[in-house]
Structures are given as structure tokens and as C-alpha cells.
């Protein structure tokens, strides 16, 4: 028999001594800050101004993947949701739902990566929760995070703000997160030199807003990929969009993997990219600023907003023809046909 200490037991979630030990030994020291350390029933802090508030649950499988893990993802995802409203993310909650039998060592790795992500993004975890569910009731570890952020004066970013004539910027290459995760799943057996792009984009957004406060829309093309995000924005703003296939940054390995599995990279998830829509006069300036940031180095102007075909996204192909880019329907499944 292996020692019982290195696994999470149901008792770790019972509210008793083991629960306390887990919180006080494994979580709080790592995420330590004055608000959290009080360990009251709720986090108490002062904040005034226009607030943004969001929550998201993370259930990625496998929980470790090239370029990140579920912990980093759970912070970056919520940071990015706030940043896409132009908010500066500040205070976070983290709730862990752990499957009985989960290795403590793996939990520690994830706690550390949560800590690193919060440090990079400059946010604080001020409250949290831990539950343990019987084996089989969850897949290793689920994480829910929520966050609040402050929106600076004068910033008005919304998915419904795109105007005809606006330029569409993309902060870098697409498709890496989705493929990095998929490459780790059973039964596919590819060795793919692709890392998840999972990253907090709030500082990139600050840089971009410094170059132009006129940014109309920001959104991170996560599930459903770039195609789905552009469709959402086109529908919300009741405008059409034209993009250029040639200008969309794409790593060769991503392209190859997509060819192999029959995917279209436009539909593969990203976790560290953003789409920005802004007036044409500011486009170059924001692009240049974007490229100074490590998460925007391969940024590009990929298209523009048009009056025609509201709610529709049309792509100019390499051959100079055009093609309608629809939302993703159904799951992304590898195909052989």
C-alpha cells in the first residue's frame, strides 16, 4: 500500500481537520495576501468605479498539457474575460472541486501555477473553496474562478461597438491551445510540437488602450476559434466582416496538424489571443504597440468591418476567391474523409 498522505481523501473536503490542513498548508501560503489571509467567510475589500465581474468553470482534460495546466488556464481565462471588457482585473475567487484520490503532488503543481499566473497578471485571490467528491464524480479536478476588475474612465468596449470601416486586429497565431490539448488525449498518437498559448492578456490590453482609447471591441477567440468569435461580433454589432486568409498568422505545425486531422484552424481554440476592432486611423498605431508586447509579437491586421452582409463573415482565400466563414457547428472531431 502506498502512503495515504499523497492523495486527496474525501475527508479533505469534510470541513474537519484535514480540510483545514489542506487550505492552510497547501493553498493559503501559496496565494497569500492580506485579504485572503484573514480567512473570514467572505473577502472584504474596497473598490469604487465601474466594475466588471465574470465567472468561468474549467474542466479541461487532460489537466496538464504542453504550455500550461488547468490552474494557469483558470486564472488566464478569467483575467482575459475581464480584460476583454477593458477592465483591469483585480480580485479573484478560486473554487476547487477535487476527485477523491487525486494526487496531492499534482494539486501542489496546480496551486503553484495558479500562483504564478496571478503574479504575472497582477491579481489577488481573495476567497476560495475546496470540495472533494467521490471517485468517478468528477474528472480529477474542476476549477471555478470568478473575478472583478475596474474599468478605466473613457473606455467603452463592447461586442456591439464594431462600425463599418473599422479594422480587425488579431494578436498572433491561431489554433495552438486546442491542438496542444487534443494532442494529449488518448487515441490520436501524434507528437505535435505545439504549446498552448494560454496567457493573461490584461497587460497587452493596457498597452493597446494606451495607444488608442478608441478600441471598439475586444474578444478572445477561445472555444469555437477565430471564426466563431468574428461571427459573434458581427452579429452583435449588426455589421459584416471581411478577412484575408493570407494575413491570418498560423504556425506551420498547426497547419499540418489541421490538415492531418481534417480541422480548419479558424475553428480551433485559443487561450492567449485577442481580436480587436478599432477605427482605421488608429489601427497601425495599436498594431505597433501590440507587437512590442510578448503576447502580441505576431499581431496582424486581418480584415475590416463592412456595412454589407450584416452578421456574416466572408474570407478572401489565397486564390483570391471568397468563402463564407460560419460559426462552428457541433464538436471539432478529427475526420478521415
Amino acid at each position: 500500500m502506498k502512503s495515504t498522505e499523497d492523495r486527496i481523501l474525501l475527508a479533505h473536503g469534510s470541513g474537519g481537520r484535514l480540510s483545514h490542513e489542506l487550505v492552510q498548508k497547501s493553498l493559503v501560503p501559496s496565494w497569500s495576501n492580506p485579504v485572503l489571509n484573514r480567512l473570514d467567510d467572505a473577502a472584504v475589500f474596497k473598490l469604487s468605479g465601474r466594475l466588471a465581474f465574470t465567472t468561468d468553470s474549467y474542466v479541461v482534460s487532460p489537466i496538464f498539457f504542453p504550455g500550461g495546466d488547468i490552474g494557469k488556464l483558470s486564472i488566464c481565462g478569467t483575467v482575459n474575460d475581464l480584460a476583454m471588457c477593458g477592465a483591469q482585473p483585480l480580485y479573484f475567487s478560486v473554487a476547487l472541486i477535487i476527485e477523491e484520490g487525486f494526487r496531492l503532488a499534482e494539486l501542489e503543481r496546480i496551486v503553484t501555477s495558479i500562483k504564478e499566473a496571478t503574479e504575472e497578471a497582477g491579481v489577488e485571490i481573495v476567497t476560495g473553496d475546496t470540495k472533494v467528491v467521490p471517485r468517478g464524480s468528477a474528472d480529477k479536478l474542476f476549477i471555478n474562478t470568478a473575478g472583478v476588475g475596474l474599468i478605466p474612465e473613457g473606455v467603452d468596449i463592447s461586442g456591439s461597438n464594431a462600425r463599418p470601416g473599422d479594422k480587425i486586429l488579431l494578436s498572433g497565431t491561431i489554433g495552438e491551445h486546442g491542438l496542444a490539448v487534443m494532442s494529449q488525449r488518448e487515441s490520436l498518437e501524434f507528437k505535435i510540437p505545439i504549446q498552448s498559448d494560454c496567457a493573461p492578456l490584461n497587460k497587452l490590453v493596457v498597452d493597446m488602450l494606451a495607444a488608442s482609447p478608441e478600441i471598439h471591441c475586444l474578444r478572445d477567440p477561445t472555444r469555437g476559434g477565430l471564426a466563431t468569435t468574428l461571427n459573434e461580433l458581427a452579429t452583435q454589432s449588426k455589421v459584416g466582416m471581411r478577412i484575408d486568409e493570407e494575413n491570418i498568422p498560423l504556425q506551420e505545425a498547426v497547419r499540418a496538424t489541421c490538415e492531418l486531422l481534417g480541422f480548419d484552424p479558424l475553428y480551433v481554440a485559443n487561450e492567449g489571443k485577442l481580436v480587436a476592432i478599432l477605427p482605421p486611423t488608429d489601427a497601425e498605431r495599436v498594431l505597433n504597440q501590440m507587437r512590442q508586447n510578448c503576447y502580441g509579437r505576431e499581431g496582424a491586421i486581418i480584415g475590416e468591418v463592412v456595412e454589407q452582409h450584416p452578421g456574416r463573415v466572408v474570407m478572401r482565400t489565397r486564390l483570391g476567391t471568397s468563402r463564407l466563414i460560419d460559426m462552428l457547428s457541433g464538436d471539432l472531431l478529427p475526420r478521415i474523409c
Binding site: 481534417g262 454589407q308 452582409h309 456574416r312 471568397s322 468563402r323 463564407l324 460560419d326 475526420r335 474523409c337
Partner: peptide, 19 residues
Amino acid sequence: SSEGSCAAYYQYQSHEAAL
């Protein structure tokens, strides 16, 4: 199927309608 005639035609038609 992404190879199916109806799916292909659906895309084609929406494209024509959009343009």
C-alpha cells in the same frame, strides 16, 4: 459531413446571399 452536398451547398448559398 463537411463533404456532404447539402452542407457544401448551404455554405455556398449563404455566401452568395451574403455577397
